[in-house]
Amino acid sequence: MANKLSGLLKVALLVLVYAAVQFLEGRGILLPYHVQILSLCCINIILVVSLNLINGFTGQFSIGHAGFFAIGAYLSAYLTVKLQLPFIPAIICGGILAGLTGLAVGLPALRLRGDYLAIATLGFGEIIRVIILNTDAVGGARGFSGIPKYTTFGLAYLTAIITVVVIRNFVASDYGRACLAVREDEIAAESLGVNSTYFKVLAFALGAFFAGAAGALFSHYLQYMAPTPSQIGFVKSIDILIMLVLGGLGSITGSVVAAIVLTVIPEFLRGFAEYRMILYPILLMAVMIYRPSGLMAGRELTLKGLTELFKGAKTRAYHS
């Protein structure tokens, strides 16, 4: 009963946030520019949470997430611009192609471990970028312009919620436990009947699917895609990684908070962009040295935890 109640409470809260944004926008308190940033927050949440599935929960180390993002962004844009497909099917197609690519890349690449896998995924991401750079149908080096503005805050918000819920459910199911086992000790996991390759590839493909969906939302948000490292290359991958690491590997709420904070803050510090790029790496290194599990330390922020915090009680919520 209590479970159902807290579930309802969560839904109510989520609806309330949406209603509040709509209301404030209607009254002109939130400018379109602000709502844009909120949409971007949602897109980044999808990216970070989906990378968390691969890096945080399954213990793999991908720094090629932007590759999947790029596939979703370009394929969906191609479908809506050239084939006049409606947006939702285009998002799903973008996600599916990214997921299939994840499958195709994951099968061989996931035989590698740790830092080798990292470099291989980075290489894969760059290969995707070079392919896009050489594909005239999507604009090649000139970039892809004239993409319709289909991404609304509501759609980005809904997709982010779906991503978070699906990945949370995945992690809390037997499938997710198998991934955790692979992360903790691959040999022990295997000896318990867990096919480690299967679960690595599954996590990789699922993560790639959501990254592709985020890409679709992004290209129809910015209306222009450029095949540059900072938009679809390793710089983008590392941006996502920074959010993930600061929020904490293995914490979904940590990813959400970090994605929002690190999307909003730079918007306020536009004049200090150069210093931000110095501050971020220092922050990243400091977190690794002093608090390697990230700000959330693998824990989750829960409603129950919050209320207990207010009551002054100690929060103790591991992976719940």
């Binding site: 971020y280 790496p281 990243l284 290194m285 690794m288």
Partner: peptide, 17 residues
């Protein structure tokens, strides 16, 4: 090793910026 790798990426970004 992952922590060290992330630190190395951080160092790389720091040098660049």
């Amino acid at each position: 090793r992952i922590s060290v790798l992330i630190t190395a990426i951080g160092a790389s970004l720091l040098f660049q910026s």
